[in-house]
Amino acid sequence: MKRIYICQDNITGLFSAVYDAWKQRRESGEAGIAFRGSVAQELFCEYVEVAESEEKAIAVENLIKRHLGDDSYWDLYHAALSADSDKGSAILGTMLEARKIPDSRKIMNYLTCPHVAKVFELNRRVSNEAHYFKEFIRFKELDSGILVSKIRPKSQVLTCVAPHFADRLPLENWMIYDQTHGMFVVHESKKNWVLVSGVQVNIEKLDRYSDSELEMQRLFKGFCKSISIEERCSYNRQRQHLPLWFRQNMVEFEQ
Rank of each mutant, 00 (worst) to 15 (best):
S149T: 09
S189D: 07
A59D: 14
E46N: 08
Q156P: 08
A117E: 04
A31I: 10
N249H: 14
T180F: 03
D143M: 07
Q200G: 07
R125G: 00
Q156W: 09
H67E: 05
N192C: 06
D84T: 04
R138H: 15
Y177G: 02
R152A: 13
W74S: 08
E42T: 09
Q255F: 11
L122Q: 07
K190I: 04
E52M: 10
V161N: 04
C233A: 15
C160Y: 09
D75V: 01
E213R: 07
G198H: 05
K150P: 03
R124I: 02
L92W: 15
S144C: 05
Y19N: 12
I227K: 09
G88K: 00
K150I: 01
F184T: 04
S212C: 04
K65S: 09
R3M: 09
D86E: 15
A117L: 03
E52G: 12
K65I: 14
K190P: 04
Q179W: 00
V48K: 06
F246H: 04
D70I: 08
S155F: 02
T12V: 14
L68K: 15
A17P: 08
D9E: 15
S234H: 14
D167E: 12
S16Q: 10
T94Q: 07
D75M: 11
E27M: 02
C160I: 05
K150G: 05
E52Y: 00
L147S: 13
L96C: 12
A40C: 05
L122F: 10
N128E: 00
E129M: 00
W22L: 07
E52T: 14
A117H: 09
I91R: 05
G88H: 00
I137G: 01
S28P: 02
R218L: 13
E46F: 00
Y177S: 01
